[in-house]
Nucleic acid binder design. Structure first.
Length: 268
DNA sequence: AACGGGGTCAACCGCGTCATG
DNA sequence: ACATGACGCGGTTGACCCCGT
């Protein structure tokens, strides 16, 4: 038995994407929309795994992505979402417009984790480290800490909505001595509740996903819904926008992008 | 100027889940 | 109900960059 490889390993390129490959992928998706990632490499003329194409697109080439560091507000939201959802990065990302799960995961591991540790907060349980240490001292059961872990790791959700009585958010009220940050989040519980527990991603304008396949962006009259914000194009790679075949863009847009592109060329 | 160490982030890997036949 | 295939997710890796010595 065993699992079949997601793609034919022979002749499949790995490693960093080149500008040429990005162009091909963008061109293909702009023309055909997102469909059947497995078929994308072949159809787009890429020697890449479909999975790799999807990842490249969702994490880097997607037009609705924000670039750059997370803002303070975004960071706070991530912390609170993590307290509630655990390492469900995709769920967290869904509530942060323009951010990817990979980006948030990386930011968590490189910035937020350390920040929380500095503040004396366990980044896994969102409990005060002092409190946890005391708890461990007072309890000879190793189970206790394991339970804490399990609440976040086994099913991902630290506390379900059915059990709001013991949400980490409320727990954080009990550890406010250690965390002004979480305190501030706790104080805005109603806002967070409204943000967090609506099933549909409330913050994301996911219009990109609705770009219809085929007849979309560049073959004539209809522009994609994100067309009035094309600043991402020169930003996303160090290749020229003209290479994408963006004939649909008007002169003003092209001029704007050319200007940006000029600046970007220095990077290349 | 050269080197080393730490930080950052894009990309890969393997598994779980879901859809379909 | 089961098998299979495709997609999506989270963990991990490795290359690159920056900064201090």
């Amino acid at each position: 038995m065993g699992r079949q490889p997601c793609c034919d390993k022979l002749g499949v390129k790995k490693g960093p994407w080149t500008g040429e490959e990005d162009k091909k992928l963008i061109n293909f998706i702009l023309t055909n929309g997102q469909c059947c990632w497995r078929a994308v490499p072949k159809l787009a003329g890429l020697r890449r795994c479909g999975k790799s194409c999807r990842l490249r697109w969702t994490n880097y080439l997607r037009p609705d992505l924000k670039r750059g560091l997370l803002s303070e507000a975004e960071e706070q939201l991530v912390i609170d979402l993590h307290a509630r959802l655990g390492n469900r990065w995709s769920k967290i990302a869904a509530r942060l417009p323009g951010r990817t799960d990979n980006e948030i995961k990386n930011h968590w591991n490189t910035h937020i984790k350390k920040k929380l540790l500095k503040m004396g907060i366990d980044p896994v349980t969102h409990e005060s480290l002092n409190k946890e240490a005391k708890a461990e001292e007072s309890s000879s059961h190793a189970d206790h800490s394991a339970d804490n872990q399990n609440t976040t790791e086994n099913d991902g959700i630290v506390n379900s909505s059915e059990d709001n009585s013991s949400t980490p958010t409320e727990n954080c009220s009990s550890t406010t001595d250690d965390s002004n940050l979480l305190d501030s989040i706790c104080n805005d519980e109603s806002l967070l509740t409204s943000l967090l527990w609506m099933d549909e991603p409330p913050l994301v304008d996911a219009s990109w996903n609705s770009v219809p396949a085929g007849e979309t962006a560049c073959n004539g009259t209809s522009l994609p819904p994100w067309e009035d914000d094309c600043a991402w194009l020169p930003d996303c790679q160090d290749f020229g926008i003209h290479d994408f075949g963006f004939d649909c863009l008007n002169d003003i847009e092209l001029n704007t992008m050319n200007t940006l592109e000029m600046g970007d060329k220095t990077v290349a």
